[in-house]
């Protein structure tokens, strides 16, 4: 029996010690916003925060999580999707299918915690999650928006579409 602090609540979990945190979160705790994408820490769909740092939960075994560790999933980021990053995602209308977006949002929150006003190069370097729908341009704009950098956001969205009739 392991004790896990997820989103501020302690869960007692009966899972094998080598069970990846992703599957503990999804199958034992029942929070399904964190997604399975590859199982080898490549795509980032499973991104959660471990003590405030973004990690890919599909490769972190349960035994590597200490009792005092604090895990935050997309469900615990805010109440009513009011985190600045979630609001920016809504404003820019980022998601297409939405499957990777929990992970993208968690990665963006971690980036902004470390780098409150990232450059495009810093976004490129830290936002390595895969979005197969190709929402990258809008993710970039939403990160600038969440950072309060409206000039950079406008540059990204410049000429996004022009209707010629």
């Amino acid at each position: 029996m392991a004790k896990l602090n997820v989103n501020g609540k302690v869960h007692e979990v009966q899972a094998e010690a080598d069970t990846p945190l992703l599957w503990v979160i999804r199958e034992h705790i029942g929070l399904t916003g964190t997604k399975f994408g590859c199982g080898i820490a490549q795509c980032g769909a499973c991104s959660v925060h471990l003590n405030g740092k973004v990690v890919r939960s599909c490769v972190i075994p349960l035994m590597a999580v200490k009792e005092g560790d604090k895990i935050t999933t997309i469900e615990g980021l805010s109440t009513d999707a009011t985190h600045a990053v979630q609001k920016a995602w809504k404003q820019i209308d980022v998601p297409q299918c939405g499957y990777c977006q929990s992970g993208q949002i968690m990665a963006a929150v971690a980036l902004l915690a470390k780098t409150p006003k990232p450059t495009n190069a810093q976004i490129d370097a830290s936002m390595t999650n895969i979005c197969r729908c190709g929402t990258y341009q809008r993710i970039r704009a939403a990160i600038h928006t969440a950072a309060g950098n409206s000039v950079a956001a406008a540059e990204v969205m410049a000429n996004e579409h022009t209707v010629v009739i």
Binding site: I130, Y136, N159, T162, V164
Partner: peptide
Amino acid sequence: ITRMVNMPHVETVIAP
């Protein structure tokens, strides 16, 4: 797979 770093600035002209 294409990631953020690979993505260019994309401009779409819609001419119906």
